[in-house]
């Protein structure tokens, strides 16, 4: 953990070398997600409710998914850019250092320009939390935190799977973006609106709905069971196969080379 903080400050120093570029990118990130927010606003001002969710309630969804995704992307960028690390031999360097491979890949890149998106998500929370009609109890605040934290971890798991695939194909795989970028984009609305099939897929296979749709039902008192409050924790099981897959990739790399 100390090492991770050290890497953290190194990345900070590196990125602060180019201050103007840093702030412009950050503002860019902010504006892009702002545009998405606008599209959401126009959509909702026409229809008012989607499957019984009001605009502010949908915003809760939007903000928690955006926040989780951006946190994962900011800190787990190393996995996102992993194909590059394999290509330029940096991964060999990681293997000749006495630390776990996962830690090193994780620490290899951090992108603080994603703060633009995190900021956006924070603003939306500030707007939506009081207006969503949720009566905020301690349990519900905890639920919201779980949604963000577990969401970020599941996206992080997806990045790991993406990275692991690149052991086998070398070139990056665009289809994974359906789940990562797509998960974020579609996560603007509760996943249930896309139909039963998709909801099942996002529950049992890639558990995006576990940290978004189900706990949202708890927040809105649609489901009263405490079980719904803790569904985000259930989604973390996804990290196990993701981790195992990555380790399998490392083993394959060690026996075949790049």
């Amino acid at each position: 953990m100390r090492l991770y903080m050290k890497f953290f400050s190194m990345h900070m120093k590196s990125q602060m070398q180019y201050k103007l570029s840093f702030f412009l990118t950050m503002i860019g990130q902010f504006l892009v997600s702002f545009a998405i927010l606008l599209s959401l606003y126009f959509m909702m001002s026409r229809f008012n409710v989607v499957m019984g969710f009001t605009y502010e309630q949908v915003l809760l969804c939007f903000a928690s998914v955006l926040m989780g995704y951006s946190l994962a992307e900011m800190l787990g960028r190393g996995f996102d850019l992993f194909p590059r690390m394999l290509g330029n031999g940096e991964f060999d360097r990681a293997l000749v250092r006495p630390r776990s491979v996962i830690t090193q890949v994780l620490a290899s890149k951090m992108d603080f320009t994603r703060l633009g998106r995190i900021l956006q998500a924070a603003f939306v929370f500030i707007y939506a939390v009081p207006k969503s009609g949720v009566i905020w109890t301690r349990d519900k605040i905890l639920t919201l935190f779980l949604m963000v934290i577990c969401g970020s971890l599941v996206f992080f798991g997806l990045f790991i799977v993406y990275a692991a695939f690149s052991f086998f194909t070398v070139e990056g795989l665009e289809f994974m973006n359906i789940l990562t970028d797509g998960g974020r984009e579609f996560g603007r609305y509760p996943y249930a609106i896309y139909g039963e099939g998709i909801l099942k897929f996002l529950t049992y296979f890639v558990p995006l709905a576990l940290f978004q749709y189900y706990p949202l039902l708890y927040l809105l008192d649609i489901e009263k069971s405490k079980l719904y409050m803790f569904t985000p924790l259930l989604s973390l099981i996804f990290l196990l196969p993701a981790y195992a897959f990555f380790q399998y990739g490392v083993r394959k790399y060690k026996s075949t080379g790049s």
């Binding site: 100390r2 050290k6 590196s14 070398q17 330029n88 940096e90 360097r93 000749v96 006495p98 630390r99």
Partner: peptide
Amino acid sequence: VVFGQRSQLWWDVPVVDSFELIKDIYK
């Protein structure tokens, strides 16, 4: 290990900072 064609130093920060990080990596 020194790979002649690849660097293990951080591109944008002073060399001594890279050294400090290596110190922590190797404990």
